[in-house]
Design a protein around this nucleic acid. Structure first.
Lengths: 340, 340
DNA sequence: CCGCAATTTGTAAACGTATTCATTTAACGA
DNA sequence: TCGTTAAATGAATACGTTTACAAATTGCGG
């Protein structure tokens, strides 16, 4: 591999100092046009490309933003990531998309990596298992959270979230209005704020019909926000003697898993069981089963996220803000009246 | 933002030189155990996290690999990316996933960015519009190509590809065997090697039945590998007077677009038109229309890709290699006999 | 107890850039 | 022409590491 061309080389060739070259390259005003011409000439001639490693070391800013997500297969997140990328790249920032596969250890590795790579800002959709470390990093790096709160005092940063409670409340109401009472709820990890809020939305809707959802309520499955968990939930469900008549899925990955397993078991929706989903699944209109879903404007969310992190980088000491997006319920073909 | 803790700080606090600290941190052998203890003690105490920017500047290696893809929504690519990430992260490399949105200018920006960030290696699935620049970079950075050749002499690196010709040949044969002769072929950009090879597979299969596909063959649509193009192709198709009886889609994004538009126009598959697809679409078994598809083992491809780039980084001067993966045809419910 | 080798530690110079401060040059009115 | 000021350029230092080289320490046979 040939030696890379540095600012020094073009300084020598142009018979100027490295300082002037640097100034030309950074559009400093204190440089004459003739000089700019000459320098840029040799820059082109030698095919110089700046070393942003060195630049970063000096300026202590990398023009990069980390985006930590649990799952790169999640269309909701991908869609948001694309918009965020779009927004921040207009300001010359690069986005590092890091997918942890829902694993806490991987997440910690990534966090350390991003910290040691000196990213200027961080967007976090965490597993919730590294909050202590995140809190430490928080003093060093501006942060914006997506979907999940950091469960600790003293966090400094913004939150962009969907209206978890409302979404699940509405979905549950719809099931109830059809007459469903035995609703099987497939939850995400219990320690996550969004899981809790979604669950609470369910609980509150049920309570309005006088159904108490407590530790004795039988139709609860708790897993990860993964297809795998959705599949397991269905298996679990069909081992019960008193089967539920409807399923409330708390996340799109879960929903896909549930659909896959219902399909594998030849269970028809909504004839045998009704289904509602928090978050939309991809290409829904092409599906045999189109779950009635609480959906969100991922473009709007992405834009807000991108803006928020840029603003925080500009002004790290700003007040904590919350941006909550309300759901739109999309009707599918997954709802029927309960069969007994 | 508080000042970051450097090697110097922990040197001072431990009353040793920065050199020893550095040696401890890099597990150099020439350091006594007692010393290692003492240093690591203060490392933990101060919560030191190494500055990889500075490290990179000195060592001229960033332990990072760039992966340039045209579309982050493409499940085929995402699935590969996940595996690659898995492979390279075992060797402590980080993967930068960059999605160009099929735009040549964005691609060039990303290439420059990756070059200036000194990535150790590059995996490229390009638009084909920046081959000259890539050729220049090629002397600086080890590269592995995915799916698309660089159309120029003197390229140095590996290629991982699917068997484009065979895949389309087999799909076409299957349509022909059902009696289809008027096959509408939806192609990707004509300047890309994989487009060309896929098209040739189609041409050769047709030739075997004595059908000459040349500039007079009416059923050709050329677009980008995007949903949008797939939708436009369908619109184009249904403005023809002598309608084709089958569609061959050359890529999964195109296929989704085609399905969407067929659905929007209420055209039934396979009753009104048959469909085959190069590449599988996601969650196919949940779809109303399951296109018969040439599919590929993305895990195997990802593993090969990851291994290849790591090997190239180890030994940049190695021979050019080609790894071609054969298709598996999955039968869907998208095929019927031609309706006249 | 000395001397020499082997091991461990320290010193200092890089890596490529930005930037302060000093210096040179240009501009211009008197 | 000269002096003054403003503008352009250069010299030198620093960013946080690694690493060649030098120096110090240790071990050990005599």
């Amino acid at each position: 591999m040939p030696k890379q061309i540095t600012i020094k080389d073009i300084a020598k060739k142009t018979h100027v100092s490295v300082a002037t070259v640097s100034r030309v390259l950074n559009d400093s005003d204190c440089v004459t046009d003739a000089m700019r011409q000459r320098v840029m000439e040799t820059v082109r001639e030698l095919g110089y490309v700046p070393n942003s490693i060195a630049k970063s070391l000096k300026t202590n800013s990398t023009y990069s933003i980390g985006f930590l997500v649990p799952d790169i297969s999640n269309h909701f997140l991908i869609s948001i990531a694309r918009t965020v990328e779009d927004i921040v790249s207009r300001q010359k920032y690069n986005l590092f998309l890091c997918s942890t596969g829902n694993r806490a250890d991987r997440e910690l590795d990534y966090l350390k990596m991003l910290l040691s790579r000196n990213v200027d800002g961080l967007i976090l959709n965490t597993t919730g298992h590294n909050d202590d470390f995140i809190l430490k990093m928080n003093t060093q790096i501006p942060m914006v959270l997506l979907n999940r709160q950091v469960q600790a005092e003293g966090f400094h940063g913004d939150l962009v979230d969907t209206n978890n409670h409302l979404g699940c409340y509405l979905l549950t109401k719809q099931l109830l209005s059809l007459g469903h009472r035995k609703i099987f709820v497939v939850c995400g990890p219990a320690h996550l704020s969004n899981s809790q809020e979604r669950f609470q939305g369910f609980v509150d809707a049920m309570a309005e019909k006088g159904i108490c959802v407590d530790e004795h309520y039988p139709y609860i499955y708790t897993g990860d926000f993964l297809m795998q968990s959705g599949m397991e939930a269905v298996n679990h469900l069909y081992e019960m003697e008193d089967k539920p008549t409807a399923i409330l899925s708390m996340n799109n990955m879960l929903t896909v898993g549930i659909l896959e397993q219902l399909h594998a078991r030849n269970i028809r929706v909504p004839e045998q069981v009704s289904l509602v989903s928090y978050d939309a699944i991809n290409n829904m209109d092409l599906m045999v089963t189109r779950p009635t879903s609480a959906t969100f404007d991922t473009t709007a969310i992405g834009e807000r996220l991108g803006k928020a992190i840029l603003e925080r980088i500009q002004n790290p000491e700003g007040e904590n803000r919350k941006f909550i997006f309300d759901p739109t319920i999309i009707q599918g073909n997954s709802l029927g009246v309960p069969q007994t």
